[in-house]
Design a protein around this nucleic acid. Structure first.
Lengths: 114, 114
DNA sequence: TTCGTGATTAGACAAGCATCTAGACAGCGC
DNA sequence: GCGCTGTCTAGATGCTTGTCTAATCACGAA
């Protein structure tokens, strides 16, 4: 169920230190786009803060949209490389992939003193 | 020219530590949306990495889209509270507002050891 | 095998967004 | 004042995206 995760080509240089090239910007923008929906950001925070894997059946009740809509948003997070999932029996479990979060956090970090 | 900057209501708790509420998620998603376009992310990186204010006339040549399109994207960054600008004579200058970047970076940060 | 439950996929539709052209505005120099 | 340059605003257009319902798939139990 782990599908093709985008490779992290650009790494670790904050935008406050060096401007991004077009390819790096496209890569970064794609991940930000995955977090640019309130539902997806909440999904990400629920999964990331769980400290463990989370069952979809425990996620869906937090939201007021239909199951397929949640499923769609989880797929977007998966394709952005932010989470991964596995089916176990009847249920599907999601967990965070912290590398991407760390990467974005570094990208946006601002040196304390310039 | 500095317009109403959104207030930073939610602050400083990484999503890896606590799940976001709907309002916080909406606020964060709005800022991520501003960075979810490759052109805007490059614009932000150009302005943030300049170490000083940047003239629009120095920005536009980096891109292959029309002037009004750049102007539109800069407005989105401005309304997200990521940059601010001022007209001086014929030219308009932009500079970064690091608070927002720091906030996002903290939001996405992952504790070294869980 | 058949049924029931949990989750995803498929397809449709409305709303939102990126981009363009044309026009307006601000400031400088003649 | 008049024209020129740099930037922004207005309005239109085509593409993208979020959401839904209906259908399908995966698995476990009877």
């Amino acid at each position: 169920m782990s599908n093709q995760l985008p490779v992290l080509n650009s790494c670790c240089t904050p935008i406050s230190e060096a401007a991004l090239g077009p390819e790096q910007a496209a890569e970064g923008a794609a991940v930000f786009k995955a977090l640019s929906d309130p539902i997806r950001l909440r999904l990400m925070s629920i999964i990331a803060s769980a400290g463990d894997e989370v069952c979809v059946c425990d996620i869906t009740p937090h939201f007021e949209v239909s199951g397929p809509t949640i499923s769609h948003h989880l797929k977007v997070l998966r394709e952005a490389g932010l989470v991964d999932c596995e089916r176990r029996g009847t249920w599907v479990y999601y967990w965070p992939l912290p590398e991407r979060l760390t990467w974005l956090s570094t990208l946006l970090s601002v040196p304390a003193a310039v």
